[in-house]
Design a protein around this nucleic acid. Sequence first.
DNA 1: CGCAGATTTGAATGCAATCAACACTGGTGG
DNA 2: CCACCAGTGTTGATTGCATTCAAATCTGCG
Lengths: 252, 252
Amino acid sequence: MDYPIKKIELANPLSPEERAALIAACGPPIDVAPRADIVLEGERTEHSTVLLDGLIYRYKVLPNGDRQILAVHTPGDWPDLHSYLLKTMDHSMGALTRCTIAHLPHSAIRQLIDTHPRLGELLWRETMLDSAILREWVVNLGVRDAYARTAHLVCEIQAKLAAVGIADVAYFELPMTQVDLGDAIGVSTVHMNRTVQRMKGEGLIACLNRSITILDLPRLQHAGGFDYAYLHLPPRARPATFLEPLLLRETG
Amino acid sequence: MDYPIKKIELANPLSPEERAALIAACGPPIDVAPRADIVLEGERTEHSTVLLDGLIYRYKVLPNGDRQILAVHTPGDWPDLHSYLLKTMDHSMGALTRCTIAHLPHSAIRQLIDTHPRLGELLWRETMLDSAILREWVVNLGVRDAYARTAHLVCEIQAKLAAVGIADVAYFELPMTQVDLGDAIGVSTVHMNRTVQRMKGEGLIACLNRSITILDLPRLQHAGGFDYAYLHLPPRARPATFLEPLLLRETG
DNA sequence: CGCAGATTTGAATGCAATCAACACTGGTGG
DNA sequence: CCACCAGTGTTGATTGCATTCAAATCTGCG
């Protein structure tokens, strides 16, 4: 269960002291029930969260009831680290699956940064990775159609899981309902269903009891126009099977 | 021309030493021609930018030529501060209007943070504000229609300009073409044009030589479902004319 | 003047939303 | 144990927002 370290160390290995300080700052592991909310929009928090196991998502609900999912977080992520600097949440956060998290009091974060400035930069960098992903989501929603958006989303989560050594390239399960997927890529449930079915028909994915499995990752990446660059992963965290987008374009 | 200070001080006033150090870290002011690119996707930079005057935008271009605008920056913003931590740009940045910027070498930023840790937090916070806006863009693209998206975008830029004391509540110009607006909210130029015309017809905005003027800010905010909260502005930086969304909902 | 970029308009197409209904699942409580 | 119910997945039909293609106008500018 060393995920929090594993992901932050993708950027730069930690010294033993830094690693110890980081772990010491985390509270005890906490179990969260699937579908449970963790923080709600408008709340003021005095601690941030690190995700140890399971999937967390962030979302906003509009006055008319529409929900937009903003991010899907994998183990090793710090989903609400920003609350260290923007105390009142401008969105909500909940558990997609059963998951275990740990809390970091903001005071502990401050102390951590004071004593280990480089750790502060790594934490800042983590929030910048989330921004990079957010930018790609804007692109996804802005220019791609439902089919490509879906493919891109699935590829992204796969890549994030693979980067911390959880997902297999060949086979990986995504426990999101079609309602969730629809709210993430901005289409209705009905249309999401038809999109998923088309993907199944074309052999890209398979569905099994409320979760999605990747059957053909390269073709899925191609369908979504997926390019690893925006994840800013070190080369070793990218699967060797990934073909450069340029190559795929010429093939398609 | 103290915009860089003015915006960062919205969160917290700087001490004289901090202010001096921040200004000292900035290079000399640089003029940028309208429509000129400042950094391109894929480049590795050794400095970040602060916007002193004019408007900057960030964007991605897809292999098929589609462009998605990711952000519109106003004076006092640090549009590519993230490059301090993610050296290679995952998107491009250009000038919307003629504008003046200053460069901050990454080495200067590091030194700034080392000697003034609180300044480091304020810079981090600036990047978190950009993330908050990015989240709202995801919502905008995901759940709102073209009309509301346009209204929301215009309101956002107005609010940002007003926060640093540039835009007037009653009257303010936005020098973006309809092509730009379309690429920002993810609709075609043709549809953007029809949306703008509808807004003109309803008396929300007016158009004058390639720029847009707000005529009725409250109604525009209502149309876009605009809520100041996500900008995390201190109360004094919000116009008194802003009505709480709840209030507007009951009115509409 | 001529040109390029921006705006405008029309017509046809299509992607996706909406409305509606139904099947399936697991969980709850009587 | 079964009825019921809520959530999920599936399908069909209709509507409409937005795209695309096309062409014309307008504007500033060299």
